[in-house]
Amino acid sequence: MVVDRSFVSEETWAKIEDLMGRYPDKRSALLQVLHVVQDEKGYLNYDAIKWIATLFRLPPAEVYSVASFYTMYNLKPVGKYLIQVCTNISCSITGADEIVRFIEKKLGIKVGETTPDGKFTLITVECLGSCGKAPAMMINKDYYEELTPEKVERILESLK
């Protein structure tokens, strides 16, 4: 088996080695390795899936099967900022739909789309566990809560 370490940065490789050593069975590290490779690459394309499959000695189809089960793995390219608006119950009854419509209008894209400059991708997600500060969204890994259109506007401006 040949794993081409240069596929990822040295920092990512060090993380992977650490993660793979944490469990009684190395396969347990699969979800974590998918996370760190995605952190570096932005999304998981065929090359990334195949590389991870070689690392774990699994068929690439098996790795893709696992990755596609979970919603946090991007299997297609996403913008620099991935805007994830919660539209589940507590958020939707406190105005999440309005937030989504506002962002759509502001960025000129629909849910599921990416701005032409590749900067923003807008998606809706299920409950983020921010119901106490609804409506809420995540941009990449950061939470933004108690949203109002004005607040969202300021946040988007700050990202430009």
Partner: peptide, 10 residues
């Protein structure tokens, strides 16, 4: 022991 055949998404 696995092959290029699987179930994807959910």
């Amino acid at each position: 022991a696995g092959t290029d055949w699987n179930v994807y998404f959910r």
